[in-house]
Design a protein around this nucleic acid. Structure first.
Length: 471
RNA sequence: GGUGGGUUGGCCGAGAGGCGAGGCAACGGACUGCAAAUCCGUGUACACGGGUUCAAAUCCCGUACCCACCUCCA
């Protein structure tokens, strides 16, 4: 069984064949660091993190590049509104992003280049495009450089659109463009409105890069002129990815072999209002559920399916995930964490190989949990079930004992051991009451503990307590 | 106008010609002092109208509604 992936360029699921055996190069468009990341932003990161982990588990050496756009119109506008330097805003938001991704166990990429660190490569690429007759300097003296879409016969091929069918941008600044669909490779510095710190020297005068050129430059710098997979959100297909491909190929690079796009996550059928928008910021959501539960919610849906975000669905997912955790708690975790495809069931591997079928893969996990629980109920050994479950959760970035979750939420060890002492004392009182068959007193103790947000579970080996996450 | 996607049980969410993915919730049962956890059981779901087929949620034609992108966007 080989991995099959849905390629946007061909609109079909096809066998994944790497350019070089045993190795995979992936480039994912990260975020423009202009505001705090919300749930929608991190979905993309989680989806591609799963891809990356699955490729690693399948035996590939993965080179994973995810960029950040740290200079653009929006950053300049927002920074000006907040009366702070643009680079300070970008830097601070980049830190927020890193924190948010770490809180849901997204592995750091091999490298995370920023646009501002790749400007010489972009200038070089633009010069090549001008030399080849695919780009021109704006004739209005603005210092802008544009890509000439009419000069590239296959422009529009990624999204199957003809140039003449495209709606000309109504609000685009036409400064010196030959065709309204031409896009900026380089934006000349606007002295009156833009800070000098946002301009870099170039053969066309001071300025800053256009949005699309950065990814072409960064991808080829770190992955080479041809690489395996390019990913991003659906909204990036056009214009961003179309433009990236056009300019890269026009400069003589084959560029990406496969294009993967994750679907949107929206909020309860409404436009994101300010209050709802704020409540969807990652730290806000993590006040309600744990990071591992948020990640589970994202992973449970297929990456190409549109998800309608709701707190109800999030709570349901969290409740479902706790069932899996409970099973592992009951069996007891393996002393060393089981990893590797050989520890997973064939059904799980087949589901993942089929365009990362995480919903089907989760169904396999649930089936194993039920079988394991059943074995436990009849005093049979369920450790093998648990091994499979652990390995499968691990590759999805959902292993409860992953270091990534340590220190998050209720994980403070000193606090936990302090609570343990107190609860244990109360449980001893309850045990005494139960031995005396004083049910009223026993239940009163349990109710008091429950009121503090702690769930008591009587097991053959005595009562166990856990934080009631559903509360 | 162009391009792409969607509509599945109370809810979430897979599947893509033939045996009801899975989860959450609900109800009944087992276990329990009572619970919790767990297990067992309970559902005649595929927007609408036609068609193809021995067989359609799945393919074809049409209709309705929804969403995304068309130079700010994960």
């Amino acid at each position: 069984m080989t991995l099959r992936l849905h390629d946007t360029a061909t609109r079909e699921v096809r066998d994944f064949v790497p350019l070089e055996e045993g190795k995979v190069g992936i480039y994912v468009c990260g975020l423009t660091v202009q505001s705090e990341p919300h749930v929608g932003h991190v979905r993309s990161a989680v989806n591609f993190d799963v891809l990356r982990r699955w490729l690693s588990a399948s035996g590939y050496a993965v080179h994973f590049i995810r960029n950040v756009t740290d200079i653009d119109d929006k950053i300049l506008t927002k920074a000006a509104e907040q009366d702070r330097p643009w680079y300070n805003l970008a830097y601070a938001m980049h830190a927020e992003l890193t924190k948010a991704l770490a809180s849901i166990n997204v592995l750091p990429p091999t490298y995370e280049p920023g646009a501002t660190g790749t400007i010489p490569e972009m200038v070089e690429l633009i010069e090549k495009l001008i030399a080849r007759g695919h780009a021109y300097v704006g004739e209005d003296g603005s210092g802008d450089v544009y890509f000439d879409v009419r000069s590239w016969p296959t422009y529009g091929e990624l999204t199957r659109q003809g140039i003449d069918d495209m709606e000309p941008a109504g609000d685009a600044d036409p400064r010196g463009k030959r065709d309204p669909r031409d896009f900026a490779l380089w934006k000349g510095w606007k002295k009156e409105t833009e800070p000098e710190s946002a301009a870099w020297p170039s053969p066309w005068g001071p300025g800053r890069p256009g949005w699309h050129i950065e990814c072409s430059a960064m991808a080829s710098k770190y992955l080479g002129p041809a690489f395996d997979i390019h990913g991003g959100g659906v909204d990036l297909r056009f214009p961003h990815h179309e433009n990236e491909q056009a300019q890269s190929r026009a400069a003589g690079m084959p560029f990406a072999s496969y294009w993967l796009h994750n679907a949107w996550i929206t909020t309860a059928g409404e436009k994101m209002s300010k209050s709802l928008g704020n409540s969807l910021l990652v730290p806000e959501v993590l006040k309600r559920v744990r990071g591992i539960e948020l990640r589970f919610y994202i992973v449970s849906a297929h990456y190409r399916s549109h998800v309608e975000f709701s707190f109800e669905a999030l709570d349901e997912a969290a409740a479902g995930f706790r069932r899996i955790e409970n099973f592992l708690e009951r069996v007891g975790y393996a002393s060393t964490r089981p990893t590797g495809i050989e520890e997973m069931t064939a059904e799980f591997v087949a589901a993942m190989d089929d365009d990362l079928g995480t919903p089907a893969a989760m169904a396999v996990v649930y089936d194993l949990v039920r079988d394991g629980n059943r074995a436990l109920a009849s005093d049979q050994d369920a450790r093998m079930h648990a091994r499979h479950v652990e390995a499968m959760l691990d590759v999805l970035g959902l292993h409860p004992h992953d270091e990534a979750w340590a220190g998050a939420g209720a994980g403070d060890e000193k606090l936990t051991s302090a609570v343990d002492v107190l609860i244990t004392a109360l449980l001893e009182d309850r045990a005494t009451a139960r031995a005396d068959r004083d049910w009223a007193r026993a239940d009163a103790i349990r109710d008091r503990i429950k009121a503090a947000g702690i769930e008591i579970e009587d097991t053959p080996s005595g009562p166990k307590w856990s934080i009631d996450n559903a509360g």
